[in-house]
Nucleic acid binder design. Structure first.
Lengths: 218, 218, 218, 218
DNA sequence: CATGAATGAGGTTTCATTCAT
DNA sequence: TATGAATGAAACCTCATTCAT
């Protein structure tokens, strides 16, 4: 399930076990990496956090970089799956509803994966060049869905914007910011407030009246 | 001149020489760090790039982290100085003029220091906690000036925005994005185009007509 | 049957099964060792090549060195048995016939066990001191039989040589050489040619006319 | 001077020092390898034997295999140089004198480098394929000189042998044997005796009267 | 009897930092 | 002031061996 394109050496033939263990390793390692930083984290730290011996860890992964790959790949697949579902879900909505749904979904995701977002900033440059495409792919996944919504809105006359792609990009970036600058934003707004205000700002930017009720739960 | 709050061990008494050498180290090291990453860069790499021996490098710096500190500190001081000057320069302008000037200045700075911006993402988490304040300070420096401009604009009725601080923050973030996402934006826009479009977007967001002529070259 | 002096731990009481399995392990392991080298071969490689689990392998052998011991011991016993039979077979022959028979037999053995011979060079120094005697024993086995033949030949006036033991040793060494230097000799002679020429050389060395017909196929 | 074809990573630019240190490492490491075996020897063992820290050892050598390469390369170059000189020295001699000189030289070399010869047997199979040529080269070096001598002797009617190359090879192998089987030969002969007897045997093999006086020093 | 997941000691290699010259 | 040889702690990774199932 985490297994993407790259093939990672294993000493076990039990595919189910390997997936399970890698799932565990990914879940644990990301926490350790986020806390200590990628470079400062030793393989033994990860092993300990996984309640495994170093040796066993190396049964499922052939080197430290593999873990990085697994983490990024896992997140990227999750991202794409999430936006795929969102895309379908918003097909029947009006552009405005779809936009609101999108923002709510994406900003929520950022909020839930703050640690990962920050971590990604640190390690993106470390990823071997042949693996960078994952970042592009995930970005495009997210962008495409929003771009479509904006295009529909422009076509229907709901939205005013010259460049839907840049607008989509901007909306994404302001979401990402919630993670990048939590040390600044976190002390000023709750997530709900941030979502609310930014939604209003975005609405205004594309020439819409602010939504009556953005957050579903109120 | 680069020496901020932190005191860094030196074996030299000639303060002028120390500053000169540190200036050189900072300028060179940032390039090396940006190219290879902080962790992958060895002290000997830096020494070689500086045309110094390792021993001499350690005359001006007591450890690798010192170099990181010097780099960030240098940039942060530059930032604050720049925004200080900008602040004075915009005092006599109308809010609209000041805003345009601000955006032009900040986005230009981001463009010129792209590498540093990206590098900072990687190493921010590595900075010892007692040095993180530099990031806050630089951020506040930049934010304060813009916030003032926005507040003046709101007061004068030129701008419409509920939360000037968030708006200022957004404007900054969209500038930073030019560096963070150059792999996406760089292939779609020249810097001038990006500046132009984002200025328009910002204007719309705060209820202004787009400026007649934002970029100097038109 | 393979079990020599040393007692090797087993988890099985079924002696016949143990012998059978060890026979298999020895036959397979020597191939793997010869291909990869003793040190580079992992126990899991051997287990896999034997179509066993590592655990089962350890039922018949207590450590890696045991396998080495079993291999050398097996070969050494085979050698001694072979030369024992040869000894009996040549008792009734004339010294000249016996010598020819000996050379044919020994050189043929070397040819058939080339890999083992080369392998032995690599690992002889690795054998624990208390197991080295196997090499001496096998050497003496082979030497004794030949020495006897030469002595008979000298006594009968057929052979001329001052030092039968050294002569015997030389004859053995030139046989071993077929394995040691196959990268040189193999491209110049077939085994039959090599056997033929060396037999002639040996004959001349001990003052005999070359044999009319040494190899069976002529 | 030890530097052959392969380029080995260094952290020092002082070529003279590097050569000197590598010379030392080679001289020491071969002793350690011979005593403990290549695989059982740890880099720290070599470092200690060289009175260096592990780290310094790695300044002159990039991995354990490099040391093996240096040793083999060094010996092989020494071999070729030695046989080159021998070749020149024997040009003006009669074939018989040249042969005696050759045997004395080669067998003496084997005697002096016993440890290395045995070591080479152990590690030949470990050498990366691209480095094996060194063994061929050294072998050919030695063989060529002897082959020439034998050919001259055959041409002059001094020697009788059908196949000079095989004869040369045999002579070499019986020399090598002094090292390979010192555990057998060493207890029966002194080196001088061995040299003496084998010279006689070789003489007889090529149809010569035994030399009046083989060992120069008597 | 049979399996292969699990262990952890131990080996190789790296590199920030020191210090004699 | 300037050098770079030297150090050694610490990281990564391997694999013989064990043992619960």
């Amino acid at each position: 399930m985490i297994s993407g394109t790259r093939n990672i050496r294993t000493f076990s033939d039990d595919e189910k076990l390997v997936d399970e263990r890698r799932r565990h390793i990914v879940d644990v390692a990301i926490q350790v990496f986020v806390t200590n930083g990628y470079e400062k984290t030793r393989m033994s730290d990860i092993a300990k956090a996984c309640s495994m011996s170093k040796g066993l860890l190396y049964h499922y992964v052939s080197c430290k970089e593999d873990i990085l790959y697994l983490i990024v790949n896992d997140q990227m697949q999750g991202t794409c799956r999430g936006f795929g579902a969102l895309d379908e879900r918003t097909q029947d909505m009006s552009p405005v509803e779809a936009l609101v749904e999108y923002i709510k979904y994406y900003y929520g995701t950022v909020d839930r994966t703050q640690d990962y977002q920050v971590f990604l900033n640190q390690v993106a440059a470390r990823l071997p060049r042949e693996d960078r495409h994952m970042l592009f792919d995930a970005n495009n996944c997210a962008l495409k869905v929003l771009d479509d919504i904006l295009k529909r809105g422009v076509a229907s006359g709901d939205f005013e914007t010259e460049d839907t792609t840049l607008m989509a990009h901007n909306i994404l970036m302001l979401g990402r910011t919630w993670a990048d600058r939590r040390w600044f934003l976190g002390s000023r707004y709750t997530f709900e407030q941030y979502l609310d205000i930014q939604t209003k700002v975005i609405f205004k930017t594309i020439g819409l009246q602010p939504p009556a009720n953005t957050t579903a739960t109120g």
